[in-house]
């Protein structure tokens, strides 16, 4: 399978990365080189093989359903580019 310019632009938008026409053209070539490389996986017979879900057989650890942390609003917003009274500020999303 290979991608065309339109697909690259669509994927860039899904990934929320702005691309120029020139970027998209360059990426098309690079992505096709990588997709060409991974193509060889199709020759592997995987009939009856389960997809891997966990590399080490282990049961998901469960914690007690209790509050162990919190009250750190100031820490959480400390690194944000724009905040006001412990809220993250973003461009207006609702008219």
């Amino acid at each position: 399978m290979s991608v065309d310019l339109q697909t690259v632009k669509r994927v860039a938008h899904l990934a929320r990365i702005a691309v120029s026409e020139e970027d998209a053209e360059r990426m098309t070539g690079e992505l096709n080189a990588i997709l060409g490389f991974v193509e060889q996986l199709n020759e592997v017979d995987v009939s009856g093989i389960e997809p891997m879900t966990s590399v080490t057989p282990m049961d998901m650890k469960k914690r007690q359903d209790v509050v162990t942390d919190g009250g750190k609003a100031a820490d959480i917003v400390a690194n944000a580019p724009a905040t006001e009274e412990n809220f993250f500020l973003v461009p207006k999303v609702v008219e």
């Binding site: 592997v44 093989i49 891997m52």
Partner: peptide, 9 residues
Amino acid sequence: LQAQKVRNL
């Protein structure tokens, strides 16, 4: 899905 199957192999 194919890659995760190959990973098991």
